[in-house]
Lab assay of single mutants.
Amino acid sequence: SRSVIRSIIKSSKLNIDHKDYLLDLLNDVKGSKDLKEFHKMLTAILA
């Protein structure tokens, strides 16, 4: 869910600018399909 993804971003080791950017992107995501794609992208970034 959106709140879980937000929590993953906030607890990541990324610097604050990257976190803010990803949180802004997350706010722009519409629909469950796009949310799944965003989660895939985030997982790849944090891997």
Rank of each mutant, 00 (worst) to 15 (best):
V4D: 08
S7F: 05
H39D: 06
S1N: 11
D28C: 10
D20Y: 11
D17T: 10
N27W: 04
S7L: 11
L35M: 09
D28Q: 15
I16Y: 10
L42M: 05
T43R: 10
K19V: 07
S1T: 11
L26G: 00
A44I: 11
D24C: 12
I16V: 13
L46G: 01
K40S: 09
I5F: 02
S12I: 04
A47I: 10
L23Y: 08
I45C: 04
D20T: 15
H39M: 14
K13P: 10
V29S: 04
T43S: 10
G31T: 14
M41T: 06
N27A: 12
T43V: 10
K10E: 14
I16A: 15
G31W: 07
N27R: 11
A47S: 10
K19Q: 13
I5G: 01
T43F: 09
H18C: 15
L26H: 00
K19R: 05
I5R: 01
K19N: 02
N15R: 06
Y21I: 07
L25F: 04
L42D: 01
K40M: 10
I45P: 00
K30P: 04
M41V: 05
R6K: 12
A47Q: 11
D17L: 09
M41I: 09
S12V: 03
K36R: 13
D24E: 13
F38R: 00
L42F: 03
L23V: 04
L26S: 00
A44W: 05
F38L: 04
I5P: 01
K33M: 08
K36C: 06
D28E: 14
L22I: 03
I9M: 00
L14N: 02
S7V: 08
I45F: 08
E37T: 08
L46A: 02
K10S: 09
S1F: 14
L35G: 01
S32M: 12
S3Y: 04
K33C: 05
S32D: 14
D24W: 08
D17N: 09
M41W: 14
A47E: 11
H39W: 14
N15H: 14
L35F: 06
E37C: 05
V29K: 04
M41A: 06
L26W: 03
L14I: 06
L23E: 04
D24Q: 15
L22G: 00
A47L: 09
L26F: 03
H18G: 06
K10F: 04
L25Y: 05
L22C: 03
Y21P: 00
Y21C: 07
H39C: 10
I8H: 03
E37K: 13
S11K: 13
H39V: 15
K33F: 09
V4G: 07
S11C: 05
S12L: 04
V29R: 04
L23I: 08
I45Y: 07
M41K: 07
K40T: 09
S12R: 01
L25G: 01
V29L: 08
D24K: 15
D17A: 13
G31N: 12
L42T: 02
D34M: 13
S3V: 10
V29P: 03
D20Q: 14
G31M: 06
I9A: 01
L42H: 01
I9P: 00
E37V: 07
F38C: 02
N27M: 11
L26C: 02
L46P: 00
A47H: 09
D17K: 15
